[in-house]
Amino acid sequence: MNPSLRIVVVAPDLDVANPEDEQAIRQAERSRNLRIGLLENGFNLVATLPADVFLTERIAQLQPDLIIVDAESDARDSLEHVVMATREERRPIVMFTNDDDTGHVKDAVAAGVSAYIVAGLSPERIRPILDVALARFQHEQALLQTLASTQSERDELSAELKDRKVIDRAKGLLMQRQGLSEEDAFKKMRKTAMDKGLKLADVAQRMLDVADLLA
């Protein structure tokens, strides 16, 4: 992974309001270790943001290359905010949590999380985790682009076949009504298309539409 990648961490405030809240203390400690680990590994940590209604705007301004979600009891809510914030422009998302509720994993993967890490966070694990997450994201994006390209090719082929059928029908109409040969009928349609600055299929469709009206 390129250390110059811009990374944003979405996490709660490190300040613990209640010193007796052990869960909040553990989460703050893990979050602090995560940020220290990123810096020790030479990553470009551009910001730490709360998971709130302003997240979409802040991410749009910062344009990070990768987003890390650091959450525990509020993991689902934090993830929803991040998904909404990256809906228009997808980015690799890595989620760190101590919440062992596996019900979150399915939702996280469906939402586009590239890596879901439960506990066991240590500085030396950060780089390989982010490497895998980024590679998986890039692989998925490549697959999506391939699927989109394949679908586009299919759509183009379908449109081409449809146009060909329309042209053949119009050509047959000219041959029948004006006694033209197939070649002459095609030349006449092509000349009309050139004279009017239209596509051959559009001319053919107009001919068929007129013929239907006069039938």
Rank of each mutant, 00 (worst) to 15 (best):
R90P: 14
V10Q: 00
D21N: 11
Q141M: 11
Q23V: 10
I93P: 00
V113Q: 11
R127S: 07
K162N: 04
K165H: 11
K162F: 06
H81N: 12
I126K: 07
H139R: 09
V8A: 09
P3R: 07
E153A: 15
K106Y: 10
P92I: 14
N33P: 08
I25N: 00
L174H: 04
V53F: 07
L134H: 13
K165N: 10
V16K: 00
M207N: 10
A11F: 04
I7F: 00
N33H: 11
I126V: 14
P128G: 03
D65S: 15
L157W: 03
V9R: 10
S152Y: 11
R90C: 12
I25P: 00
L157P: 09
R125K: 14
L173C: 03
V210W: 01
V69Y: 03
I126F: 03
Q141N: 01
D13G: 00
E183M: 06
A193Q: 01
S73D: 15
R169K: 15
T146Q: 11
T56F: 09
M95C: 05
Q178V: 10
F96L: 15
V109E: 02
K106N: 09
E156C: 11
E20G: 13
V203K: 02
F186W: 05
A75D: 14
P19V: 11
A17F: 01
A115T: 11
L180F: 01
I129R: 07
D65L: 13
T97I: 06
F43D: 07
L66N: 02
N33Q: 08
